[in-house]
Write a protein that binds this DNA or RNA. Structure first.
Lengths: 220, 220
DNA sequence: GTATTTATTTCGTGC
DNA sequence: GCACGAAGTAAATAC
């Protein structure tokens, strides 16, 4: 990893064209070949960058970064270098995550009883021609229910569930199928659309779910 | 901007929980208050980060970054500092972009004749209750056409156009309204859905569009 | 490889 | 401030 602080201007020509006037910035060059140009704001997002695989050619005050496959270019014109430091970090052991959509799905699949008393799981990732339904289950009266899970419930999720319901309701073994839209947070417009389509909305709490005993507790 | 290279482990607790084992990394602290933890790969994306506004508390080998509103936390445990450099960059003049969806829309609005001979523009960003239609125009026979423009045409774009068409077709002054889905690239599933709904698909070429004379050339 | 879905999406824009 | 759509989206995953 090489860290350069320099007064520079930058031109990008690729999927779009973009220009940065001369100013002091951080140029971050990683061991994977990537180059990114940072200002002192905009959180972690660089002003401009080039993804690997790319090649850097350091000319006389002009660094040219070329993406090997697409031909995109980042042209960095250096006026003055203020700091230049290189350090090898080695390979990172990587990040362990917990609490994303997949986990919500797993948790809820084991606890469909939280959606309604006496509900039972048919299966998780129930396959259809247009993709898998997150959870298919049956209510206490044995009627089929399709559940779509999102971390944040927006209008697209309701559209997606609607397509599944249309398809599932063509199957005489399943029909009539009703829908449940479950998310940690549901946007008002999504809620309105769901209501309009007869879909129930359920707000999920990740920590609560973790605290609830699974419907079929494991012995080991 | 402060650049620290250090052996550290990191724990994030917030929208999810995540853990990074001890390893050498770059800790990038910007003037806007953001903190990001970088490995020597993954292009410009940090392994972990905190967006502003947040506060950093430097304890004894433990830096705690707390997001002020949400309470999210990033806990950085420092084992060894290998480099520590601070430099003020000042405010960046910012990036000028060219060539994204807005430009496609502007270009096409001035050249609706490329969609069909004798077509004319009604207006760009035609307002409706559920949002603006990218382009509304009339074909050679005076029938209304709604055009949805995307850089990459996917299924969501077809859904969006469908909602507009449903709404527009309730207006007796406009109905019947048909749809055109225009994009630089259209995904197969989007194409199938569009066909199923009677929506025409058009592939746009940015460079071609720029080369075509506008329908109503300006005198100045 | 292509296609689909998620993301601590982030980021801008309009209300 | 919230809601919505776009992004040089990127990244993981299924097929």
């Amino acid at each position: 990893m090489r860290l350069v602080i320099a007064r520079c201007s930058v031109d990008y020509v690729g999927r779009l064209t973009a220009h940065l006037p001369m100013a002091p910035r951080l140029i971050l060059m990683k061991a994977d070949g990537s180059v990114s140009i940072h200002a002192d704001d905009r959180a972690y997002k660089p002003l401009n960058w080039m993804n690997p695989p790319c090649a850097v050619h350091e000319g006389d005050g002009v660094w040219t970064v070329t993406h090997e496959r697409s031909g995109e270019q980042l042209i960095v014109t250096i006026e003055e270098i203020l700091h230049d430091f290189t350090h090898e970090l080695g390979v990172d052991p990587g990040l362990r995550k917990d609490g994303v959509e997949l986990h919500l799905q797993e948790l809820l699949a084991e606890r469909v009883g939280t959606l309604g008393a006496g509900w039972s799981l048919v299966r998780r990732e129930y396959p259809t021609a247009i993709g898998p339904v997150d959870i298919l289950c049956r209510d206490a009266e044995g009627r089929t229910v399709a559940v779509e899970i999102k971390r944040r419930g927006e209008i697209d999720g309701v559209e997606q569930l609607t397509r599944y319901l249309t398809l599932l309701n063509r199957d005489p073994h399943l029909a009539p199928v009703r829908g449940v839209f479950a998310a940690q947070e549901i946007k008002p417009q999504a809620r309105v659309l769901a209501r309009d389509r007869g879909i129930d909305c359920v707000t999920l709490d990740y920590d609560d779910l973790r605290g609830i005993e699974p419907d079929t507790p494991r012995l080991f």
